[in-house]
C-alpha cells in the first residue's frame, strides 16, 4: 500500500562516502605513492609513508645529519621511481658522492645544479618538478620562502609526481608553510667510546603534517645493513599547534 521509507544509510557508510569525496577534492589526501621512512613513522603519518608529489620541509642546523636524512629520501625516491633522476640544487652544491653513495644514492641518476640566486633556484626546482623525468628535487639553503613560492612548488610536484625536499638552515621561528610536512632534524650523540663513533643517530621531529599529528623519533642508521631503525619515540616536541 504505502511505499516503505527508504532505509536510512548506515552512519559509517555515509562517513566513508564523505571522506572519499573530500579525498577527491583534496589532491594531497588521495591514495598516492609514498616513500617508506621507518615502520613507526609510516604508521604515524596519515598517508602511510612520506607522500611523493608533495613538498616537505626539513629544518636543521647540523648540515651533516640533515643532508643524510635528505639524501636517504632522495635515494628512496630514486629506487621507488626507477628511470627517474634526482636533482640537487644549491647556491654552491658541495655534494660528495663517495660519502653519499653509502646512503644508496645513485650517482648515475643525480644531477647538481648551481643557482646562486634564490629566484633561479626556485625556477629550476619548479621546472624540474613539473617534468615526468624527475623523482626528487632537493633544494638547499632556501632562506625565507613565501607562501606563493611554496605553493607553486607543491603544485609543480603534484604535476610531475616527484618529491620536493626543502632543506632550510635552522630558522628558529619558521613561518607558516604550505608544505605537506615539516621536520626538524637534530643530531644526537650516540653511545660511543673515545675511539669509536658508533652508529649515526639523530632525532627527527615531525613538527607539522597536513591532516596528521606531530611526533618525534630517535633514528639510528646501520651502515652495514643500510637500514634505518627507530630506537625509541622521543618526547613529543613543542610542535606547532597551528592546524593545516
Amino acid at each position: 500500500m504505502f511505499a516503505r521509507p527508504a532505509p536510512l544509510p548506515d552512519r559509517s557508510t555515509t562517513l566513508a562516502r564523505l571522506r572519499d569525496r573530500l579525498a577527491r577534492l583534496d589532491h594531497t589526501a588521495q591514495d598516492r605513492d609514498t616513500l617508506p621512512v621507518t615502520p613507526e613513522i609510516n604508521q604515524h603519518l596519515p598517508w602511510g609513508g612520506l607522500p611523493l608529489a608533495g613538498l616537505h620541509e626539513l629544518l636543521s642546523d647540523a648540515p651533516g645529519h640533515a643532508t643524510a636524512f635528505a639524501a636517504l629520501l632522495l635515494a628512496r625516491a630514486q629506487a621507488r621511481l626507477a628511470r627517474r633522476a634526482a636533482l640537487w640544487i644549491a647556491a654552491e652544491p658541495d655534494a660528495y658522492m663517495p660519502g653519499l653513495a653509502g646512503l644508496g644514492l645513485d650517482a648515475t641518476r643525480l644531477f647538481l645544479l648551481r643557482a646562486p640566486r634564490q629566484r633561479d633556484a626556485l625556477w629550476a626546482a619548479e621546472e624540474a618538478l613539473r617534468s615526468p623525468a624527475i623523482a626528487a628535487v632537493l633544494l638547499l639553503g632556501a632562506r625565507t620562502l613565501d607562501m606563493t613560492a611554496a605553493r607553486r612548488l607543491q603544485l609543480a610536484a603534484e604535476t610531475g609526481g616527484g618529491i620536493a625536499l626543502l632543506l632550510r638552515e635552522e630558522a628558529s621561528t619558521p613561518g607558516p608553510t604550505t608544505a605537506l610536512t615539516r621536520w626538524r632534524i637534530t643530531p644526537r650523540a650516540a653511545p660511543a667510546t673515545p675511539h669509536h663513533l658508533g652508529p649515526p643517530t639523530w632525532e627527527v621531529a615531525l613538527l607539522r603534517a597536513r591532516g596528521g599529528r606531530p611526533g618525534a623519533w630517535l633514528l639510528q642508521w646501520d651502515p652495514a645493513t643500510g637500514q634505518l631503525t627507530t630506537t625509541l619515540p622521543a618526547a613529543a616536541p613543542a610542535a606547532e599547534r597551528r592546524r593545516a
Binding site: D94, Y96, M97, G99, L100, A101, G102, D106, A107, T108
Partner: peptide, 13 residues
C-alpha cells in the same frame, strides 16, 4: 655516468 664505491667520507665536502 659511473657509480661510486661507498667510502667512510663526508656527505658534503
Amino acid at each position: 655516468a659511473a657509480p661510486f664505491t661507498p667510502a667512510p667520507r663526508p656527505l658534503r665536502l
